[in-house]
Design a protein around this nucleic acid. Structure first.
Ligand code: MN
Ligand code: MN
Ligand code: ZN
Ligand code: ZN
Lengths: 138, 138
DNA sequence: ATCGTAATTGCAACCAGTTGCTATTATATA
DNA sequence: TATATAATAGCAACTGGTTGCAATTACGAT
């Protein structure tokens, strides 16, 4: 189901600003930052305010349309239909590598059984040392 | 080994500002925010600047003396000797519950074997639905 | 004890993101 | 199509955190 449809079903209004934001997210399937989106919008809808952008992104997250993740004190967003995956982020060189979405399934089970907690584990940024940097530091 | 000793060994200077910050972290074994620290310092060393506080916290993290974690776009810090543990944070009610530090050991092994990646998993904030909120939503 | 120097501080300007408020607007209804 | 109203947008002020820079200071060497 499209993002606009979901928003309408939840009783939210479809404004030109929201249409553009949703359009950008659909056309641009990778990770995006609010800043990226803001500079796109400056060309298509000059005058649009950043608070509108941030509020729309939060609305889309809350509605399950986008996934919001934080890394290093900043946020990134991606279309939820892209599927869940995780990232291995090297603390030394900064390089990022994708990894399988099932990685945490056993941890999820443990948490459900032991604490009754239903963990999200949607798009986790795992920091550590990549193999290249580990070799160098030995 | 004490935080001051570690800093000295790394060739950093011990300033009155750093001494106070280290003292506070030692006396205050739980999670702390930069703001908390700043208001403590206002009483003990009026005039100390927030940039000094943030830079010192980063220095301590880099030196392995404190662990820095982010949750919801903010940072919290704690003395590294406190031991590693993780938190289950409910996305609905916001409640937090501690959980065992070994939780991720199997994931760590998988990442080491499959990707050669040495994951940190030091103080992870796991978001999800707590058992109380899960029952309510059914 | 004094000196030289690199490290550190405070400052001010900045950045990403948030919030309360008022004016505007999408949409449901008549 | 016109109206009523709740939702939304823009604005401006704010928050937590960061950065470049010039002045100060810790500390090793003399
Ligand atoms: Mn991703
Ligand atoms: Mn903790
Ligand atoms: Zn690396
Ligand atoms: Zn809860």
């Amino acid at each position: 189901m499209s993002c606009s449809t979901i928003l309408k079903q939840k009783g939210y209004k479809m404004t030109p600003q929201r249409r553009l934001i949703v359009e950008y997210i659909h056309d641009n399937q990778s990770h995006l930052t609010a800043d990226e989106l803001i500079s796109f919008l400056e060309t298509r809808a000059p005058g649009i305010n950043k608070s509108t952008v941030y509020r729309t992104l939060d609305l889309l997250e809350e509605s399950g349309c986008v996934v919001k993740s934080e890394i290093d004190g900043h946020f990134i967003y991606h279309h939820a239909e892209e599927g869940h995956h995780h990232h291995l982020v090297c603390r030394v060189c900064g390089k990022t590598q994708d990894c399988n979405e099932n990685l945490f399934s056993s941890v999820k089970d443990v948490l459900a059984n032991r604490y009754g907690f239903q963990a999200d584990f949607k798009h986790i940024m795992i920091t550590g040392l990549c193999s290249a940097c580990r070799k160098k530091s030995r």
